[in-house]
Simulated assay, not measured.
Amino acid sequence: MSDTTEFQILIVDDARDIREPLGQYLRKQGLRTQLATGAAEARRILDEAVIHLVVLDIMMPGEDGLSLCRALVARGGPPVILLTAMADETDRIVGLELGADDYIVKPFNPRELLARIRAVLRRVPPPELPVPTGRRRFAGWEHDAAAHSLSSGSGETVGLTSGESRLLGVLLDHPRTVLSRARLLDLTAGRDAKAYDRAVDNTISRLRRKIEKDPGSPRLIVTEWGGGYMLAADVEQL
């Protein structure tokens, strides 16, 4: 897969002068990036976001990169490229034995790391997005994920596109929780779509026209400025 704009990279390094410039460089090359100062912060991000590859420094205070690499491989996590010091040949060997996909020695050329990232991503098969099923009720509406439809208590039925149904399903999975555009893209588009933030806004706008009494002043799918979107309703599984 040559279009890397669909992927999100996590950079884990306690050195700010490496972590931040590298994140800026990868973003300029079209990759989405998140930054972590250590293993604890990386674990939190991995639990909250869809990460497709981890660039991981070995030598960090607290839990080191080899320990985090071992944990990621054990749980079938994203591929790992290790950042190692010139003298850490033993750590590089151990990292590869643990299941790291590649390594690069500091100091490195960011262009070389970008080439290695793209090479690893080309080897990773895109995951299949789960096909949503089931029915759920919220704010007087009933969502049938399999049929891509909504029905109201009065018997009104509203058809949804597959994209609208999937996005609504994600909001129903996380009621009263703010989801960023990036998170919504990860959960609805996966790697196969040419995802962009405006696609989320457009789909939200169409959903509001279908379920809100006043789409111009939404009460169900609300905007959190600087954060994302939230379903402001309780959800009942049917």
Rank of each mutant, 00 (worst) to 15 (best):
P127L: 11
L113S: 15
P125H: 02
G99F: 00
E41L: 10
K210F: 01
I45A: 12
G95I: 05
L22N: 12
K106H: 04
L68S: 00
S180K: 10
A182G: 07
I18A: 12
G38L: 02
H52D: 15
L171R: 02
A233Q: 04
E48D: 13
L150Q: 03
G190E: 03
L113E: 08
A100H: 09
A42C: 12
G140C: 09
P127N: 06
L207I: 01
L238R: 09
G77D: 04
L98T: 09
T90R: 15
G65A: 02
T157H: 04
R166S: 01
R137F: 13
R181I: 09
G159I: 03
S154E: 11
A87N: 14
A49N: 10
E63Q: 06
E224A: 13
R16E: 15
Q29W: 10
V124Y: 04
R32M: 09
E97Q: 10
S180F: 01
L207V: 02
D57K: 07
G95V: 03
F108D: 07
Y229D: 00
M60H: 12
L238G: 11
G99P: 03
I81A: 07
R191A: 10
I81E: 06
L66N: 06
V120S: 08
A15Y: 15
R27L: 08
L83K: 06
L31W: 13
A233D: 02
L172H: 07
R92C: 04
R118W: 06
G190L: 03
D47A: 15
D91V: 02
R183E: 01
D102T: 09
L56D: 03
G226N: 05
R43V: 13
G134N: 12
L160Y: 07
F138K: 00
G30L: 01
I51T: 11
G62W: 10
G155P: 11
E236G: 01
L207D: 08
V124M: 13
L98S: 08
T188G: 05
V222N: 06
V200F: 01
H174A: 11
L187F: 06
L172W: 00
G227D: 04
L35Q: 15
I211F: 01
L207E: 10
R118N: 12
T188S: 05
A40M: 12
S154L: 09
R136W: 08
L83P: 08
L10K: 12
L121M: 04
R166Q: 07
